[in-house]
């Protein structure tokens, strides 16, 4: 019995050490060439920073973009293995609490925009950041519109049109923030170019 157990353990150990890293590498890799070399710490770190920045008082300014939504949507498009709709929903709820909006307002907006991003993610990966931003613009505007119409209907009054500017601005920021979020990839690319 003991022998059999040892063999089993040995077997599993050898399986772990030889195949597991490569398996993990292939399993994690998405078909997106832009995000090869990006690790979870970078993704979650950027989301955490965007979240903390969202807690600052600058968001009361008119046309202020939703940076957290931008970062989550970016990772939903480029790293859907890690960041999905559930993350978007939970962070949306936290923002609802922070901005004393009715619970579900930002959650709904984030889920709508992120799902739009996931739907066209394959297509988006064929374009550069500017064209990606142009693709995402209608999704941002639609997500904002649906949310504001639902909340306005429930609340009984219309909050004005400042949010259209905000959604437009958020989509435009896709370009600089996309460049920032892809910095590790760009660095890897330049290193490999330098070696070659």
């Amino acid at each position: 019995m003991r022998d059999v157990r040892t063999i089993k353990r040995l077997g599993s150990r050898s399986y772990d050490t030889t195949i597991s890293p490569s398996l993990a590498a292939t399993a994690r890799r998405t078909n997106d060439p832009l995000t090869i070399g990006i690790n979870g710490r970078w993704v979650w770190g950027s989301i955490a920073i965007a979240f903390l920045v969202s807690l600052l008082p600058w968001r009361t300014l008119p046309f202020s973009p939703d940076l957290l939504l931008l970062v989550i949507a970016f990772w939903c498009v480029h790293d859907s293995q890690r960041i999905g709709l559930l993350t978007a929903f939970c962070l949306g709820l936290l923002i609802d609490v922070q901005s004393v909006a009715p619970l579900g307002q930002h959650a709904l907006m984030y889920v709508l925009v992120c799902f739009g991003g996931v739907l066209i993610s394959r297509r988006l990966q064929r374009f550069d950041l500017l064209r990606q931003a142009l693709h995402m613009m209608p999704i941002f505007i639609l997500g904002f519109s649906i949310t504001f119409i639902v909340v306005a209907a429930l609340k009984g009054f219309w909050p004005g049109w400042a949010w259209v500017g905000a959604s437009f601005f958020t989509a435009l920021l896709w370009v600089p923030f996309g460049w920032l979020l892809q910095m590790p990839v760009n660095r890897l690319a330049s290193q490999s170019l330098g070696q070659g």
């Binding site: 999905g84 709709l85 559930l86 929903f89 949306g92 009715p102 619970l103 579900g104 307002q105 959650a107 709904l108 889920v111 709508l112 799902f115 639902v150 909340v151 429930l154 609340k155």
Partner: peptide, 17 residues
């Protein structure tokens, strides 16, 4: 997941308002 979360958000919105 999308349908569930959307419906759940709207449900929360209605309850909370």
């Amino acid at each position: 997941i999308f349908i569930f979360l959307t419906v759940f958000s709207v449900f929360l919105l209605v309850i909370d308002t």
